[in-house]
Design a protein around this nucleic acid. Structure first.
Length: 591
DNA sequence: GCCGTTTTCGGCCCGACTGTTTTCAGTCG
């Protein structure tokens, strides 16, 4: 992602928050927020949009935002943002971020008491002086102190590793309760977002009180944020918040839909409902036109709800207001990949390099989980920190693979490697050795601080190598821990498509890389994908469904993903690919 | 600031919970 577009998005988002805090018209703030989101989904660079006259046709970008974008392209600055920054102290953004404190309270704290940093707020909440403000009493001060403490201790979002485990535990605790009917996970986890802020659970019960009590008494609860008849919230140790909503049985589909979101999808859905003469909320779809008739339309499930709105049922992963409603309207939703369609496991490590299990343990685990092949891809020799394989280790591993393959029935181990992409873009072994692998994943593991141009050249050169099969974790990000390295993904994906290099969707919950927002774009460019666990032990195989979720979020079907191929088809696909690469190479040499 | 086959002005999703209040504003999702 280029700095220009990203910078613009960040600038607009910051405008929105600063305007909110300074008491600007909330709808104007929202327009900025919305505008930032809209351009996030636009392809190419801001300069191109202007040149192509794209902005005038883009919903959500009007005259005002269009001018801001032009200003950004021409000068790289936004006068308005700089003015807001002069006017509004940076600390107010942190204050506004504290749970229970919104723009109004922030403005009051600043205007009445001159509080513009977390430290000042903490002091005022501690010594009781906050009580002078209207609407601020003892509980508010306590909540603020707890909120500051929590923000210090925990980051805002959580990995899917933690979130999926917590969700499973809570559902298993509540599901067997006597008066509970249906209970489902909603929220961003149901939509397969790559990280989550909190968990949302929706249930039906004829007697919500004991359900709520069991919920707030869940083991591992650090505090109870709210405890009501229909809604309760808890904070788990580790900082993950969980909301539970209990609704009537006939409200379940509407509530599940509402709490699954996304917010943007909901907003669009409600606007559509309104246009059709309905009112949509978490309790149902109501015929708004007749005020005396308040019975909701029957919605036994989400499909029925969407059907009333003239839409095919939209899978949760697609509900991001990124074209799914239009597709559902035209009955043009994609046929999405499922976990059951994953047949082969690629890119796994063993104790030949930095994995924790042996080759046979990894292969057995794959076999027992129902997969038909394992492409083992240990680290290459330069990755000394990870015990990368010297050529003699490769030979040793190949021997073992050959031996094991005579013993498995209906399962095969393929000879792969995860080759470091060296600083100059070359791969980590001599070509003769590389030729011998069934598949070669190429990845960046060091030298991540290169400039964007150099890094992009480096990766593209590796993609041009005839032995390269798959580009591993294309941006190198570690979610919530490390930003992606600087790289022009557009050019990388173009190069991958041109050389028929498969793009990895790394299923490790800290990576989930390629990012789902890029997947549709990459597919349109002609890329194909592999969903790989990058497992370093047998437990890591459980991450494959997370990668499938990300692929679904990127609108991918089984045909887009190479490891949905049965073993023989996959083998012949690899062989054909190798042969044609050889022919291409020979032709290139001759000319 | 955006938008329009009811509209170029006047809307902009909507409801629960909390804390502070005697009827509601702010926050959150």
């Amino acid at each position: 992602m280029s700095a220009t577009k990203q910078g613009l998005i960040a600038a607009l988002k910051q405008c929105a928050v600063l305007m909110e805090v300074s008491g600007e018209n909330p709808f104007r703030c929202r327009a900025y927020e919305q505008g930032a989101r809209v351009i996030e989904g636009l392809e190419g660079e801001p300069a191109d949009w202007i040149e192509q006259g794209l902005l005038a046709k883009t919903k959500g970008i009007g005259k005002g935002l269009g001018e801001k974008i032009e200003e950004w392209v021409e000068s790289g600055r936004l006068e308005m943002l700089e003015e807001l920054q002069r006017k509004v102290p940076a600390g107010l953004l942190e204050i506004e971020n504290i749970p229970g404190v919104g723009p109004k309270k922030t403005k009051l704290l600043w205007g009445e008491m001159g509080i513009d940093t977390l430290e000042k707020l903490e002091a005022a909440a501690g010594d009781g002086s906050l009580a002078e403000l209207p609407g601020f009493a003892k509980r508010t001060a306590e909540k603020i102190l707890a909120g500051i403490e929590q923000r210090r201790r925990y980051s805002e979002r959580h990995s899917l590793e933690l979130a999926t485990l917590a969700a499973k535990a809570i559902l298993e605790r509540l599901r067997p309760l006597p008066r509970i009917g249906r209970i489902e996970l909603a929220g961003s986890l149901r939509r397969s977002r790559e990280t989550v802020k909190d968990l949302d659970i929706v249930a039906t019960s004829t007697d919500p009180k004991p359900v709520m009590r069991a919920f707030v008494e869940t083991p591992g609860v650090e505090s109870v944020i709210a405890h009501g008849e229909t809604k309760s919230s808890i904070l788990l140790e580790g900082g993950l918040a969980v909301d539970l909503r209990v609704v009537e049985a006939d409200q379940f589909a509407a509530a599940l839909n509402y709490f699954t979101g996304s917010k943007q999808h909901n907003t669009a859905l409600r606007a559509r409902a309104k246009r059709m003469g309905y009112k949509l909320n978490e309790y149902g779809l109501f015929p708004d036109t007749d005020k005396s008739n308040l019975k909701p339309l029957p919605t036994p499930d989400e499909a029925a709800l969407y059907a009333h709105l003239g839409l095919a049922c939209i899978p949760p992963e697609l509900r991001e207001d990124m074209g799914e409603i239009e597709a559902a309207e035209q009955d043009n939703l994609p046929e999405l990949l499922t976990s059951a369609q994953m047949i082969g496991v690629l890119h796994c490590h063993t104790n030949y390099s930095d994995g924790r299990n042996t080759l046979i343990e990894m292969a057995t685990a794959c076999h027992e989980a129902g997969y038909k092949y394992l492409g083992v891809c240990d680290h290459s020799q330069t990755a000394a920190y990870a015990g990368g394989l010297k050529p003699e280790d490769v030979a040793r591993q190949w021997d073992e693979i050959d031996r094991l393959n005579t013993k498995f029935k209906g399962f095969r181990i393929l000879k792969g490697i995860e080759s470091d992409i060296l600083a100059d873009g070359s791969l980590d072994y001599e070509d003769d050795l590389l030729e011998g692998f069934d598949l070669v994943v190429v990845s960046i593991h060091g030298g991540m601080n290169m400039g964007e141009g150099e890094m992009t050249d480096r990766i593209c050169r590796a993609l041009e190598h005839p032995a390269t099969t798959i580009l591993g974790h294309p941006t190198g990000r570690l979610l919530l821990r490390r930003e992606p390295y600087a790289v022009d993904l557009e050019r990388v994906l173009e190069t991958a498509a041109k050389h028929r290099v498969v793009v990895e969707i790394n299923a490790n919950p800290w990576r989930l890389d390629l990012d789902w927002r890029w997947i549709r774009r990459a597919r349109a460019m002609g890329c194909r994908f592999a969903i790989n666990p990058d497992a370093h032990d047998t437990a890591g195989l459980k991450h494959i469904p997370l990668g499938v979720g990300i692929a679904r979020k990127g609108w991918l079907g089984p045909k887009d993903v190479i490891n949905t191929k049965p073993l023989n088809a996959f083998k012949s696909w690899l062989d054909k690919r190798k042969t044609s690469k050889r022919i291409e190479e020979a032709a290139a040499h001759e000319s």
